[in-house]
């Protein structure tokens, strides 16, 4: 990527973030390297091992998810109503998630993702964001529009994905 492209991407990112209008150093609560946000968005494989660290920074995750939302991803909003504080099945027009307990280990669950419609996007990661917390998990190759991931109950990802207030992004 040459400097010209970097500048272009930065302004595009600022435009998405709607920050350009108000952008001033004094207003920032924390440092935001918009170049980095944009680069992570464009090269998720390059940052695969670091992405969860980045998402811990609220400003980064806000900017990142805004880009994802606007640039193209499959998304599921917070649930309107849930009878339990944990949700093990979520469904939208675009995808369905089932979380099934493993019989081998009580701490292990299977996250079964089923994409409903054909989609042109390359789906690499599943992001979950809830109450200023976010996490990401790498998706295996989809087989017949379906993927299965083993998750641990003790992991933060499990807490977030089963939370009815969680928003889910797949990209």
């Amino acid at each position: 990527m040459d400097n010209k492209d970097k500048i272009s991407d930065t302004f595009l990112a600022l435009n998405y973030l709607n920050l350009s209008k108000y952008y001033s150093k004094s207003k920032l609560k924390s440092k935001l390297n918009i170049n980095m946000v944009w680069d992570v968005y464009l090269n998720p494989l390059k940052y695969q091992n670091q992405i969860n660290e980045f998402l811990k920074k609220k400003v980064f995750s806000d900017a990142y998810f805004l880009i994802l939302k606007n640039e193209g991803c499959i998304y599921q909003a917070k649930l309107n109503a849930a009878s339990n504080d944990r949700v093990f099945s979520r469904s939208s027009n675009e995808f369905k998630i089932e979380i099934v307990k493993s019989n081998k280990n009580e701490d292990v669950y299977y996250l079964i993702l089923k994409i409903i419609n054909d989609i042109d996007l390359q789906l690499l990661n599943l992001y979950v964001i809830c109450d200023n917390e976010s996490d990401c998990i790498k998706l295996p190759i989809l087989n017949d529009k379906q993927a299965q991931i083993l998750i641990k109950k003790s992991d933060n990802f499990f807490n977030l994905i089963t939370n009815p207030n969680a928003e889910i992004f797949i990209r």
Partner: peptide, 19 residues
């Protein structure tokens, strides 16, 4: 281990989480 019929069968190495 027999798993829930909803689950796709998996092979893992030494009880790891990664299929």
């Amino acid at each position: 281990v027999k798993e829930d019929p909803l689950v796709s069968s998996v092979i893992c190495e030494n009880n790891n989480l990664e299929a």
